[in-house]
Amino acid sequence: MTAPRSRRAAGVAAMAGSGLSNQAGAAVGALAFPVLGPVGVVAVRQYVAALVLLAVARPRLRAFTWRQWWPVLLLGGVFGTMNLSLYSAADRIGLGLAVTLEFLGPLTIALAGSRRRLDAGCAVLAGAGVVVLMRPRPSADYAGMALGLAAACCWASYILLNRVVGRRVPGAQGAAAASAVSALAFVPVGVAVAAAHPPTAGAVLCALTAGVLSSAVPYLADLLTLRHVPAQTFGLFMSVNPVLAALAGWAILGQGLGTAEWAGIAAVVAANAASLTTQR
């Protein structure tokens, strides 16, 4: 009994480290926005993610067929668009609110097609949280909110495409190939950003740190986690990421939230948690 408990404890510790690393990395990357902008930071993050995934998975790209390549190409495009939308939203409305809106993507996938009354209640609760977050007020940035919702749509698409890629490409080769596609697409973007806004050493360091903390560390930690923790537990813990993002934004970026914003975040997190814990 001791060994399974120790493995479960290691998995929980890895989940905590993954979530904190991911959101802290996003907050550190935001420090480079004044120099590189969200586009430049996302470009660096895509490069780091591609290097890590290619080194771990070592995909046999030449052996891919067109039936395997087309969902990989779509996944790469969605991957880059998702991160760009999220970072652009974080630049305008803050990290906590941006990540909360992004989490509507996986929640929608979890609730889609369900006929349970509980899931209908979760949808209403999440909707109420979104209404609170997007309520009309003088300081509301609707462009930033729209970017957060775009990130949610991309994440939902990312989940669906990952299922297709997972069925057609063995292991993590599909994810690695998609990250390489995304990184290649961001090469001219990175060059253009560097030419228009010469990067400083500090900005590059922040962007690289974001890539490591938000891509490399979570990916490797999740590999360890899923070996020792049930997928349902993993999904449940993932649902607290909006809270971690809000805390990271407050601690690193000084982005404070009011009572209404915390209530909206709590509603979305509670909807995620309730849906995941009661699924078979």
Rank of each mutant, 00 (worst) to 15 (best):
R45N: 10
D91H: 11
A178P: 02
G96N: 02
A50V: 08
P199S: 06
A201K: 10
V131S: 14
F64Y: 14
V48D: 00
N272S: 05
V48T: 00
M82S: 02
G127R: 05
V56R: 10
T233S: 14
V187N: 12
V132P: 03
R227H: 14
A152N: 04
T259A: 15
A172Q: 11
V99C: 06
A9F: 13
V78W: 09
F186M: 12
R115V: 11
A201S: 15
N83L: 09
G121V: 07
L31T: 10
G148M: 01
R227D: 12
M134D: 07
S114M: 13
W70E: 03
P242G: 01
Y158S: 00
A55M: 13
A194T: 09
I93C: 05
G258W: 12
P170S: 05
V56S: 12
L184P: 05
M238H: 14
M145V: 08
G40L: 06
L133P: 00
R62D: 13
A89Q: 08
G235T: 07
A248P: 10
G25N: 05
P170I: 04
W66A: 14
M238C: 10
L95N: 01
P138T: 04
T100E: 00
F79V: 03
S139R: 14
L31I: 12
E261D: 09
A9G: 09
L61R: 11
G174Y: 02
S182C: 15
V169R: 02
V52W: 08
P4L: 10
R62L: 15
C122R: 02
P106K: 03
A267M: 11
Q255M: 11
T2R: 15
G77L: 09
A151N: 04
A50N: 08
A30Q: 13
F33E: 07
M238N: 13
P218M: 04
G17H: 13
N83H: 09
A195D: 14
P242V: 01
A50C: 11
A183V: 01
R5P: 05
A151V: 02
L220P: 06
A195H: 12
L118P: 03
F64H: 14
W66E: 12
